[in-house]
């Protein structure tokens, strides 16, 4: 059974068709990359899959469960988590607290009014573990607003990990991360491979071709090709629509 099945998904903003009849079948454990030029509709697609944005038509299934009508929190509880292209954290909370809240959401009730949550060892320990997996445990006690850009990207990942997803939607986790930092980040993602299914949106082609099992190319809201990284790299249609531009620009 596929992990995530998308059938004929559509979305328009006014006259602009941003998601145009998108179908996808993401296999268990794979990293399925979605690449495409700026404004292709990648973030919109992720928002539809995560339930943050409603769809005009089509359906989304997690495993064999139709989740098309579920809210974002309900999808998260079923194991579908996302990260944000533009970092979205709780700025006045510490790094650890940001992650601990995600642990708390999946573990037990949040209608507890008396115990001091900061002293809950189990929450803190699970949060530290997720932080370590994202390479950020050394910054646990720092307020999120004081983190650097690269650290913010790691915090995004750590929070998503802490929800213990079965399918993780990553929207450009490497956005704005360069050089050596990007390499260790890719290594971090590589270590997570196989633990859950990942849909990876990424502009960094080196990262995509290192990590992805399969790649789908999204252009003007349509998927124009899906295949192994090698097949995508040599697909003439893809080269014309997308990769060609990148190489010329480089």
């Amino acid at each position: 059974m596929t992990s995530l099945t998308v059938r004929n998904l559509t979305k328009s903003f006014g006259a602009l068709k941003v998601t145009d009849d998108v179908s996808l079948a993401v296999e268990p454990g794979e990293i399925h990359a979605i690449i495409g030029p700026n404004g292709a509709g990648k973030t919109t697609l992720i928002s539809q899959l995560s339930g943050q944005l409603g769809s005009d038509g089509g359906s989304v299934s997690l495993g064999d469960r139709d989740i098309t009508r579920l809210s974002m929190p309900d999808r998260v509880k079923l194991g579908l988590a996302r990260s944000f292209q533009i970092t979205s954290v709780l700025p006045g909370f510490t790094t650890l607290e940001n992650v601990a809240l995600a642990v708390q959401a999946r573990e037990g009730s949040s209608f507890r009014f008396f115990g001091t949550v900061a002293r809950e060892e189990a929450l803190n320990r699970a949060a530290l573990k997720a932080l370590a997996e994202a390479g950020l445990d050394h910054r646990a006690d720092v307020l999120a607003k004081s983190l650097s850009h690269g650290e913010h990207r790691r915090l995004e990942l750590a929070i998503a990990l802490a929800t213990e997803p079965s399918v993780l939607l990553l929207d450009e986790p490497l956005a704005g991360v360069g050089g050596e930092d990007a390499e260790t980040f890719v290594a971090n993602l590589q270590r997570l491979k196989g633990r859950f299914t990942m849909v990876l949106i990424e502009h960094d082609m080196d990262a995509v071709f290192q990590l992805a099992d399969r790649v789908s190319v999204l252009v003007y809201g349509r998927i124009i090709a899906t295949g192994t990284p090698q097949a995508i790299r040599s697909d003439p249609q893809v080269r014309a629509a997308y990769l060609g531009e990148e190489e010329e620009a480089a």
Binding site: M72, P91, F93, L101, Q104, R112, F113, V117
Partner: peptide, 23 residues
Amino acid sequence: GSRFGRVLTGIRENPTRMEAIGY
């Protein structure tokens, strides 16, 4: 200072983030 209070404060800080982790 409780679990509930942390969720409430989190919603104040960034409701979208809170929804994205299941609240």
